[in-house]
Design a protein around this nucleic acid. Sequence first.
DNA 1: TGGCCCTAGATATAGACAGCATGTC
DNA 2: CTATATCTAGGGCCA
Length: 792
Amino acid sequence: MRVADVPGLPTGVAEYFEGEGIEELYPPQGEAVEKGVTEGANLVASVPTASGKTLVAQLAMLSAIAEDDGDGGFEFGGDGTALYIVPLRALAGEKAAEFEAFERFGLSVGVSTGNYESDGSRLSDNDIVVATSEKVDSLVRNGAGWIDDLSCVVADEVHLVDDDHRGPTLEVTLAKLRQRVSDLQVVALSATIGNADELADWLDAELVDSDWRPIDLRTGVHYGEALHYDDGTQAELSVGSGSQTAAVVADTLKDEGSTLVFVNSRRNAEASARRLSDVTGGTLSPDERERLADVAEEIRGVSDTETSDDLADAVAKGAAFHHAGLAREHRELVEEAFRDRLVKVVSATPTLAAGVNTPSRRVVVRDWQRYDGTAGGMQPLDVLEVHQMFGRAGRPGLDPYGEAVLLANSHDELEELFDRYVYADPEPVRSKLAAEPALRTHVLAAIATGFTTTEDNLHEFLGETLYATQTDDPGRLKSVTRDVLVYLDRNGFVERDGGALRATATGHLVSQLYVDPMSAATIIDGLRDAARAASGGADGTDSGEPEGFQPASEMRAENDLPEDASVDPSPLGLYHLVSRTPDMYELYLRSGDREQYTELAYEREDELLGSTPREEAAEFEDWLSALKTAKLMEDWASELDEDRIAERYDVGPGDIRGKVETAEWLLNAAERLAGELDVAAATAVREARKRVEYGVREELLDLAGVRDVGRKRARRLFNAGVETRADLRNADKSLVLGAVRGREATAERILENVGHPDPGMDGVDADADATPDPDSGSAGASENQANLGDFS
DNA sequence: TGGCCCTAGATATAGACAGCATGTC
DNA sequence: CTATATCTAGGGCCA
């Protein structure tokens, strides 16, 4: 089918695509149009990656937001909005950039995720909005009215409804949108899966299920001296003295192609990149070498950690690793250099299989098993997951074909890999909704938004989910829902009156804050325990389970006692509290840690909130790893250097930033909950939050709030005698210049930001006393070593 | 006695969304 | 219960 023949498209759209060189639709795209995507039909498209899903979504959205001009044609200008749901924040920007071409039609594109909101007034003014599923859920919970104007919603990577943790959010959000907005067109884009027909049934949608791809994908397994392809052919590829992976990479390099290597752990990714850099290093042109050196320096500048240095070293030689321990900027630099063909090999954990578009001539799935503690050992990867990795092979328009290979080291394994992954179909997608954590949060949200007002109502709504269409045990959902209602009731989040359901004020707040109700219960319990200790009530060792707390009114009476600031909860206590929450991803407790943190628990016992589990208890392990996480945050908020934290906790810069971000978010929730419940701790919570946010000690909070002044600059200014914003406003300019290592532009910007009467730096010399000695690290760090060195 | 190499045993294991109000070195 | 790469301690060897 030709673009010009697509029905329902507004004026100018077909011409635009033709101008972009798209005249003929790919077969699956044509099928989607024939089934009515541009005329309002719901559609599930289960097709391989890079086979043109995005165009289907674009055609659907553009036709959905246009209006019938009453004359057989369609024009933009209606008030409908299209929503594009992405699975990752990083993908939101990528998609929005693709849609920005439509601004030529007078359309506006907005992005909304937890950490980024496109500027421009309101989301409701946009014609196309790109958001994560959680953000959409949150927008609905917070009563965004423009949701009712939606005419089309696109769910990208909809097979993720299978994900234990995040799948239910996508599922519930789609169900909710469909129920709330009448005539909403739903377009669900999925990888090729086993049961796309079930998804189509659930969404009352037409189905396009196809294996067609625009460029050929050859898959195979390497064993011995040959690559065995899925079509039965073989190609010689001898290994020699190095590893199988190195041989494949070298072979690809002969064709000037690049390789993406998937491995099963961060460590393996780093080790593999180091080894492969010996393969790539010798093949670089002088120009490439030079440009790679620049990228390497940029990478080094992102963070002071060893991880950062190791990555830079590898990149300088044309190889890289990629995993979630890297900072976001690290990942972006690696992805960009790989797309630019500068970096020839990337060894990655599955982060890269699901993330932004990083196609490669060849993909090697080196490890097809992964450690899974809950299963007691190594588990084979899902077929779907391996196929997603395969799907990164081949750059449309650049490569004649892509190649994806697994590695076998025995003949048996060769055959097993063919059966298991090359010839196998992906497993069916199954809803994970009937799990308590998922229902806890979504049931509360449904009640709090007034979406469901009775228990029958609730079951009716849950009956509209994918889970309900798939299960052969409908009683299960009901019984878990009943348990969840009991839990929400006992914790004071909902009230039940016969069959009627109503959220309490706290319940509303919890739903809006988007925290797991169990997190909220844990936080509330901890804050009340702190208040009890502060008011001289119970001694805090017997605070009871989260379910068992007393109503807020009874607590207020106790708080009438004179306050003693010294018994405010400490930052460590608060960090521990939020770390115990199911919303915080725990640090792994390593050997030796148990002893070390048990000791710390005794030392700092009176700072820790709530009851301490007995050492023999099963939950003690979790409680300790939360303490380890809390200690990391305390170190960060005590200005310990990033590299020392990375070393001490054996984490990467990305982990540190991730923990800090989550802590900040949960402490904000804690602050709001403290306010709502009238627990006195709100001020202490705010200060603890600001300290993790800025990564500074108490005395720097004022300075670090100034724009362009972070933990390091604030510490240098402070040590130079500039202790507050007021000091900074009237500071000796040479001191400030010294504290930023003589960078005039930076010094001027800072002084401008703080409102200095004359920020100009002309003729000012840096004060040598304020300039840190580059050899001994920052001024703050050397001080910290004395204070914190006792804990190592 | 000290340095080096080798081997056997021990060790550790992927990912990442949300609120709110503005900005690191 | 399953695997595997890396790290670490300890022994053997040599100067």
